[in-house]
Amino acid sequence: MMNSKRPILLVEDNPSDAELTKRALAKGHISNELVIAEDGQEALDYLRGEGAYAGRAISETPSVILLDLKLPKVSGLEVLRAVRADARLRRIPVVILTSSKEEEDVGAGYDLGVNSYVRKPVDFKEFQTAIANLGLYWLILNEPNPPVR
């Protein structure tokens, strides 16, 4: 299970949410490294090995990207678009994890090729369950994509 050791990229600008997500993952016994990008640009830099992440081996793709939509600088949907447009990145599973359940956002996410769309519930217990399920599904049940060569 090579895949299960690859990091999870969490794109989330709210530190409280980031911490809670980390906590939820931990509660769900998901031990993969959690990389947190606080805006869309940082997420893209990490994925492309640019900027602050210059030199990072980009073949080391995250096992899954947990993507918030409302982000500073580059929005979540823009990040998704860029990932799907990039031949090196397009096979990474992307799960939108957001507060919005606006139909337009959901539709736009799927149009851009998101793998899953999860709305963060206010009730943390529900949120914790959702995160645990996500980890279980994307990191364990789902057959990982072969890396792009």
């Binding site: 709210n14 409280s16 949410d17 809670l20 957001t98 507060s99 206010v122 009730d123 943390f124």
Partner: peptide, 14 residues
Amino acid sequence: SHDLRAPLRGIDGW
């Protein structure tokens, strides 16, 4: 939808 719910989630979560 997004910003008002986030703190609520925080309050609940913490």
